[in-house]
Amino acid sequence: MLRRTIPIIILSATGTMLVVAYFSPFTLSWGETVLDWFNILAAVAFVLGAGNLLAVNLEKVSSRKAGWAYAAITLLSFAAMFIFGIFKVGAVPNPSAPDVHLAGAYEGLPSAFGWMYEYVLSPLTATMFAMLAFYVASAAFRAFRAKNVEAILLLGTAFIILLGRTAAATLLTGWIPVDSAFAVLRLDNVTTAVTEHVSTAGMRAITIGIALGVAATSLRLLLGIDRSYLSKG
């Protein structure tokens, strides 16, 4: 009862209430309130996340498992960044309350937290993101070898769009006069036609399908039909 029935009641009641609330001016703000609550819960849940991260890495370090040194790096960097941020180490004071240390900004140089963000976190994430350039190329090459109609359509379109958005478009088809009957064959026009008509249609249908899928998924949860999130233990 406490473990299985009450959660379903909580879920159904919250969800149904929010659906109804959306239609009445008296309850319009409920959606925002519960989103605020969600953010608070997500922040509270950090305790669980941090606990898990510490437990896993401490265990690796203490048992000297293969690669324990890397776990130690994670632990140390986590602890350093956390202390820097929570205690606002090296933060510039808040001009309207310079005597309250914690009123200063936790981000930005020259605080220790800001330094770590600027010179450690930010270059690392930016480089991970930049690696995508190589992966896009390898994915295209992989799809190219698939040699079926779908792959050809996907890559062919990608290729045309890529050309159409660059100077290559003018280079290849720029000689076709703009006002001639063949103007539609100009790469920039082909690109526009494909994005405006074909891929817009595809996107719309995908979105409509998703909307129905979301609605059905939500209903399955609200009606208590899908209970896979409930453990029996």
Partner: peptide, 23 residues
């Protein structure tokens, strides 16, 4: 499916430039 593939292809093509800029 063909419509989907063209849709995906065009999204693919539009993304490539952005990724190269990041690099």
């Amino acid at each position: 499916i063909w419509f989907l593939m063209i849709t995906f292809g065009s999204a693919f093509g539009l993304t490539v430039m952005g990724r190269i800029t990041l690099l």
